[in-house]
Amino acid sequence: MTPEAIPEAILADLVACADLPGAPNARVAGCVQAHLARAGVECTVLPGPEGDRVNLFATIGPRDVPGYVLSGHMDVVPVAGQVWASDPFRLRAEGGRLYGRGATDMKGFLACMIAMVPELLALGLRRPIHLAFSYDEEIGCRGVPHMLAALPGLCAPPLACIVGEPTDMQPVLSHKGKQALELVIEGKAAHSSQPDLGVNAIYPAAEVLLFIRNLAARLAAEGPFDARFSPPCSTVVAGVVQGGAALNIIPDRCTVQMEVRSVPGQAPEAISAEVLARLAALEGVRVSHRELARYPALPPPEDRGLAELLERLTGKPALQSVSYGTEAGLFHGAGVPSIICGPGSISRAHRPDEFVTVDELAGCCAMLRGLGQVAAG
């Protein structure tokens, strides 16, 4: 097998592991471990508190010297309700494109990480390159915090982290933070012919929805603003509303799923707190809420050293910000300077017939090769 074909072969194995977020990930974790073992690298298995999911962490080079982290998630979003031209969990090559669920988001980067291990080993790195594989990123970066908690026992404080989400191999410097919540309003069921005997949960939910709409308008009008983002302010939206079982039954339950995306310097929880206060103020109903997902913003870097390094390795200028979020904000919050850069386009992620190109994988391997040369220094 030629070196150019190695990432493609590894990607085929990874795509075949249909491990979804919120579920056991033994297949894909085992696949990663097997490929690393064949390359001569052992990895540390870091079980999550769920009991059926793990993070993986491997090091090439000395552990007691500050180095670089390559980070990617092993889970992929579901394909339910999507129409694919071929089996989404069987890699299909056509015209230089490699189709499969996760090919872009983000098993393409994982395949490149693994494919480059033999070259990195051969360089005799003076500074280590760490390979970090996380779980449940697609439902709120749930695995990474447990990995970060274990990091001090795994290696010296890293110099930087590269999160390989699909950016067309263009370094990305920042993104917004996010918190997603489910709000629950409970009333009392009754026959619709006697509504006075029940408490309709949908009506107070509507009050909360209007509050969310007005809060979004206030954020758009008053800020705070950060022109590096589009839109330049924090946002709050209600995305899913569910209530009622039948037209002739007064609904005793209504749920609202909402999310906040905040600019750096404004915590998403601070915005959510206003909604939760309005929820708590509802009268005549029982209310509760649960968090669905959360990750902090990745603020623009104060030092451009990491950005300049990635610009040099990729040959592309850094992009100031993106609207989606990543685990880079969590690494930054843990004191590890972070940047986002990986093969494929975010426009293909989560869609039917997701693909990454052979050339994009080659470009990613070239970037990692350059990083290895820097680490070998």
Rank of each mutant, 00 (worst) to 15 (best):
S134D: 11
H146P: 13
P158M: 04
V172H: 11
M147F: 15
R142H: 11
I185A: 00
A150R: 14
P158L: 04
S192R: 08
A132T: 12
E165A: 08
H191L: 02
D136G: 00
L125C: 01
S193A: 15
A190W: 00
P195V: 15
S193V: 15
P195Q: 11
G124R: 10
Y135M: 13
A190H: 07
P158S: 05
S174P: 08
A149C: 09
R127E: 14
C161V: 15
H191W: 00
G143E: 07
G124Y: 11
L151W: 05
V163N: 13
G140S: 06
H175A: 05
M147P: 10
Y135K: 09
C161A: 15
G177Y: 00
A156H: 06
V163S: 09
P145T: 10
P128L: 07
V163T: 13
L159T: 13
Q179G: 08
P195C: 08
S192N: 09
C141S: 15
H191A: 02
P152R: 04
R127A: 14
E182R: 15
V184I: 13
A150F: 03
C161N: 15
L154T: 05
P157I: 07
K178V: 15
S134V: 15
L173M: 14
S134W: 10
L131E: 05
A149Y: 06
